[in-house]
Design a binder for these strands. Sequence first.
DNA 1: GATGAATGAGTGTTCATTCAT
DNA 2: CATGAATGAACACTCATTCAT
Lengths: 193, 193, 193, 193
Amino acid sequence: MTKNKLKNVAMKLFGEKGYEGTALSEIAKEVGVKTPAIYAFFENKEDLFMAVFREAMESYNSYVQQLSDEQKVLSVKDSLHGILLRQYEFYQQNPEASLLVLRYVVFPPVFLKETIEDAFHHSDEQLTKVIEQFILRGLEEGVIRNQSVELLTDAFLNLMDGLSMQYFYYTSKGIYERKLNHAFEMYWRGACS
Amino acid sequence: MTKNKLKNVAMKLFGEKGYEGTALSEIAKEVGVKTPAIYAFFENKEDLFMAVFREAMESYNSYVQQLSDEQKVLSVKDSLHGILLRQYEFYQQNPEASLLVLRYVVFPPVFLKETIEDAFHHSDEQLTKVIEQFILRGLEEGVIRNQSVELLTDAFLNLMDGLSMQYFYYTSKGIYERKLNHAFEMYWRGACS
Amino acid sequence: MTKNKLKNVAMKLFGEKGYEGTALSEIAKEVGVKTPAIYAFFENKEDLFMAVFREAMESYNSYVQQLSDEQKVLSVKDSLHGILLRQYEFYQQNPEASLLVLRYVVFPPVFLKETIEDAFHHSDEQLTKVIEQFILRGLEEGVIRNQSVELLTDAFLNLMDGLSMQYFYYTSKGIYERKLNHAFEMYWRGACS
Amino acid sequence: MTKNKLKNVAMKLFGEKGYEGTALSEIAKEVGVKTPAIYAFFENKEDLFMAVFREAMESYNSYVQQLSDEQKVLSVKDSLHGILLRQYEFYQQNPEASLLVLRYVVFPPVFLKETIEDAFHHSDEQLTKVIEQFILRGLEEGVIRNQSVELLTDAFLNLMDGLSMQYFYYTSKGIYERKLNHAFEMYWRGACS
DNA sequence: GATGAATGAGTGTTCATTCAT
DNA sequence: CATGAATGAACACTCATTCAT
């Protein structure tokens, strides 16, 4: 129980205030426990962070993998649009995990640089494959105009990255949703034409 | 002299390792001066950070403003593409300032949240205006198909944000340039069709 | 069983790294048990230390007492030389106990100063008596030249103390054995002449 | 000033209570300064200890070197006896340094084992040379009976080691002085006969 | 007899900051 | 303008100890 509470609070605080900006004492206090209790479950601060980061990364990855299965019934257009909505949904339902992953993928602390880059590239590759599948189906079905798969994939991934950033600095839901739809609309227009 | 050296080193370190992750002593040491010397020029750590952040923000802003002037002679397509290239150029020539701005626009420390959000939205608006001008010209000239300006602008800004993120986690120049060109190609296809 | 294992490991570690330098957790780990298990057998760290120290002291004392019995058959010279060899043997066969006793007789922790001094002086007196017996026999038999018993005893005890120290900082067996024989040879020459 | 006070207090406490048994806060408090002030002069606890230990070792060494010069005017017997008296004098005048050196030569903390062994063996060799000089003169002059130099040296060094140990556990001056004289008397008797 | 969870007290260390020089 | 000395506050971490299970 305490171990899970610690992970949850740590995820929130590490995401909000960063690794160095978060004291173990804050985490402990918010859980209602004294600082040394943390050491009954985690070797040290780094270990706690890694446990939490790995968990966040895994929940992000598993969400990515689900995408490919769930959306096979939909049209290609709705599938791709659905990916953006699913990503949005993930951000809304796991705000802490999302923030943490985004923060540390872009700004890893020195001691984690390598570990994180590996984890991220693995996750990036998986996402790329999922996108490519949909695009290939679109090309086969003829709903996407005949053009390079790499071009279509790169552009879509760029779109997703842009939306990731924007999610975290446009606090208003309304604006974000408009941005999401506009970005996708333009993308699809380019893909079909 | 010392003041400028301090600002430069501070910009680099705050960008790389974050505000809490950077000790004043590190900055001082890299400049070749003892820590208390910093207090001859800056009130405290926060003040030094603010000075440095403001400078980075300003250099980013002034680059944005130049965009509108410089690219009037080019075609609309080349102008928009040029914006991306200019942004890329700015990242390459001011890696410290770029990293700092990106980091703290997305993850502001608590004591800066408001200040930064204001500064960023101001800069965002300016950029939006510049983009809109080009798009309007494109619509007038008929090279862009008739469609909502907001749609076109939102999509372009999303494109830029995506490229910003990608610049910092794809270390390879070659990959980044491909991503930039692919993203723009798709955008332009969507805009014209 | 566990209680004995704990005592053995504690003796080793307290001897090697000292009282403050040894954590209960280390002792527990080396025994293959969790720290709180120690409290099933000993009241606290001090109690464990005392148990162990007392044991080491007793085994040292019982060895000293055996000396007087065992060596009655030998000549006085061989008896005295035998004491040194027996001491050496004890150090080799009980390295942990020896180290512990030596360490804490010379450098007792504050909370043990008195207890240890008493124990040590008791043991010292016993040893002195044994030495005196042999010397008296030597004087009676005429193999030792007629001179003050105190002089002969003091010098022999000094010899033993010197060898104790040297045993622990000359790691090489060969050197130590040479030192032992040389020291005794000189002593015996002085005693006889 | 503070730096020297720190070293003096540290020498005393490290000698009395050992490295692990002495908290930096105790040292600071006894000097009348707050703990972090220590870090203005020493990198860390280990560094402070090393500085202090090296100093103690050096003052012991320089005392050893003086021996050979000072005692050339005396007879060989008085010279050798003088060495014991000088050692005694050193212990009395530098009780902290003596205690520290003795403690850590016999029981070095793990992180110092090698450094200390080197320093000690260097000092041991120097002392050996000094003793040998006197003994050789004694042999030349004929006051020492013709016998192996190594034998005579080993026995004398053993004598000194014995006295070192005894100095620290026989608190009474009277007893120690008797032991010193008795041990030397026996040694000299063996050397001459 | 043994453990997991928890804690109070304390440790070495860092850091931003001050101030006299 | 710059530094050496010093400090208060905080931090990560360790350790002996307790207690319910």
